[in-house]
Computed example of a mutant assay.
Amino acid sequence: MTERQMQIGEVAERTGLSLRTIRHYEEVDLVIPSARSKGGFRLYTGADIERLMVVRRMKPLGFTLEEMRDLLEITDRLSSRGADPNAAEESARLRERLDAYRKVADARCETLRAQLMAAEDFAATLRRRLEETA
């Protein structure tokens, strides 16, 4: 059974990304459509959508396009390891790099949580002031 392929409009709907953003990610080699229709339309698979979602989740954490590309390469290589005798050694190096990205993501999430707390505190202060002046 072949995997279902979707056109860019459906992918945009599923991912919450704009058509323009998806096309941009293709231009910068983050996501390449799995195929093209006879009419030249981009066709995406579930794996392509997963890849787009990784990029979408990295963006608010401030990762650069190069870092996104590197992380995707790491995950691609980890998922395609074969019976190569050097695979275990390479896998360990790739996992170390992946863990470094995880640590950066964790730290950036903590920063965002602190910023959100400050923003919520500020909004609460404004609500109290409005109540006091009513």
Rank of each mutant, 00 (worst) to 15 (best):
T2A: 13
T2W: 07
R4A: 12
R4I: 10
R4P: 02
Q5F: 03
M6C: 01
Q7H: 11
Q7I: 11
G9R: 08
E10G: 06
E10M: 05
V11L: 05
A12R: 03
R20S: 09
T21G: 02
I22E: 00
I22P: 01
H24T: 06
H24V: 03
H24D: 05
E26V: 05
V28A: 08
L30S: 04
L30I: 08
I32S: 11
P33V: 04
K38H: 12
G40F: 03
G40C: 08
R42G: 02
R42C: 01
L43P: 00
L43N: 01
Y44V: 00
T45E: 04
T45P: 01
G46E: 15
G46W: 07
I49F: 03
I49W: 00
E50K: 07
V54S: 04
V54W: 08
R56S: 13
M58K: 03
M58H: 06
K59W: 00
P60V: 09
L61W: 04
L65I: 15
E67I: 07
M68W: 03
R69P: 01
L72F: 05
I74D: 05
I74Q: 05
I74F: 08
R77G: 04
L78T: 01
S79W: 02
D84F: 09
D84M: 11
D84P: 06
P85D: 11
N86A: 15
E89I: 11
E89T: 14
S91T: 14
A92T: 13
A92P: 01
R95P: 01
E96F: 06
R97N: 04
R102N: 12
K103H: 11
D106C: 10
C109R: 12
E110K: 10
L112C: 09
Q115M: 15
M117D: 15
A118L: 15
A119K: 13
E120M: 10
D121Y: 02
F122R: 15
F122H: 15
A124V: 07
T125W: 10
E132S: 15
E132M: 15
E132T: 12
A134Q: 12
A134W: 00
